[in-house]
């Protein structure tokens, strides 16, 4: 078992690769579970990571993800290279989506991804620059109650 103190892991996500979609989130889940972190907190972290990962797969070119753990909580910093989000406030609204018909047929594009991140994270910061990319900062408090 790895130490809980100041653990950090880096991952990469390739845009458009539906075959590997979810792999990074599952790896994060496994790392946290192996550390003996409360299953509900592990699940919340994995859900938030998955929704961010799927946004990269669907809309961006690539992304780097940093997972950091300290005694207070779990931090996920995802930075993607991609088109960026035009209106973050609108994108945060449940039901709003810019997914293509093909993505919708696969069950994506419910317009729930970003709201799901917000619901599962204790802190969620989203910044975007049009034409450059989007950065997600997600924090899960290790002492927080189950939210979902």
């Amino acid at each position: 078992m790895a130490s809980r103190q100041n653990l950090s892991h880096a991952f990469e996500i390739q845009g458009g690769d539906f075959g590997k979609a979810g792999c990074v989130s599952l790896e994060i889940k496994e790392i946290l579970r192996d550390l003996g972190i409360d299953p509900a907190i592990v699940r919340r972290t994995a859900i938030a990571a998955y929704e961010a990962e799927m946004n990269v797969v669907m809309y961006a070119d690539s992304a780097t993800v940093m997972l950091r753990l300290n005694p207070q909580g779990i931090k996920i910093a995802l930075d993607d290279k991609g088109p960026g989000i035009h209106d973050i406030e609108l994108a945060m609204q449940e039901g709003y989506s810019t997914a293509t018909d093909q993505m919708r047929e696969m069950g994506f594009g419910a317009g729930m991804g970003l709201p799901n991140i917000k619901r599962n994270a204790d802190l969620f910061e989203l910044k975007s620059t049009i034409g450059k990319g989007t950065s997600y900062k997600i924090f899960i408090d290790l002492g927080s109650e189950e939210k979902t």
Binding site: G22, R43, M106
Partner: peptide
């Protein structure tokens, strides 16, 4: 009714 492989990650993440 979704049969593609992305359903698997959902099932795993949600236990």
């Amino acid at each position: 009714m979704q049969t593609h492989q992305n359903v698997l990650a959902v099932a795993q993440i949600k236990d």
